[in-house]
Design a protein around this nucleic acid. Structure first.
Lengths: 136, 136
DNA sequence: CCGTTAATATGTAATTATTACAATATAATA
DNA sequence: TATTATATTGTAATAATTACATATTAACGG
């Protein structure tokens, strides 16, 4: 019954390269960033393979897709609960590892069965704060 | 100094129609939904005008752009702080009007100047809960 | 009330991210 | 080592959004 998702995937050099790039990566890369990075080591990899692999990893809960950047999806190999802080200027995303009390009482849940939560913070990253300052 | 953004915009029938549709609207429509709705009353409106107007309203802080749906941007005329609950199946979004203690101590903010916050909850809406049930 | 003009609307084309698909290649297994 | 299900590749298709040039019009002053 407790169908542990131990589904195994075929290991290919492409997947290995993507996994290696993602392992411990806290930069929340986009598919394109991943593609460019992996391509340096593995020049023949295709963009489609990156997307396919990310989809597979998502299905296996080995990667989390973030919709925090309005221009592109970002990917996070850290699938443990944590939150994010995004720069409104350069879109750099960093982790916020804190627990917030986020209980929603039934009468506020409007019949939804809540299964996940995510806190997004917006602001200027240190670099962009300085840039703005120097503009004056 | 306290540059109150009272910038006035030229009122056109198109903008009036969009504003009327958005006023008090809690359905978090996409640009396309807005376009289709407004088109019923105002058939000659163009999609570009909808996008332009949304951009203008965003700049004036009269509308908030939501990146909660991974397929398209959503728009919310309620610019007061509130949070959202999205159905992972049909993407219906409802408001959660609750205050959460979301203070981030400086040592966790990593140099960012935090100016905004948003809590997203994920789950199945009542309709989708029932659908799933009936599949078994 | 009318003329002027800066702002806006429109339609089309371009861009960007992502997905679909068909043909080829290959990891895993027996 | 042969088999085969699965993955990779390249290209083409989609979908959302943006850019841009042209035509239109709201708002203001006279």
């Amino acid at each position: 019954m407790t169908e542990d998702k131990v589904k195994k995937i075929k290991m290919t050099p492409q997947r290995a390269a993507i996994l290696k790039y993602l392992d411990g990566n806290t930069s929340h890369p986009s598919a394109e960033t991943i593609f460019e990075a992996v391509r340096k080591k593995y020049p023949m990899i295709s963009f489609t393979t990156v997307y396919n692999t990310l989809q597979t990893l998502k299905d296996l809960d080995r990667v989390r897709e973030l919709n925090i950047d309005d221009e592109r999806k970002r990917y996070d190999p850290n699938v443990n609960i944590h939150h994010h802080l995004i720069c409104t200027n350069c879109r750099k995303i960093v982790d916020i590892r804190m627990d917030f009390p986020l209980n929603v009482p039934d009468e506020k849940a409007q019949g939804y069965m809540i299964s996940g939560r995510h806190v997004e913070f917006y602001g200027l990253c240190p670099k962009c704060r300085n840039k703005k300052k120097n503009n004056y």
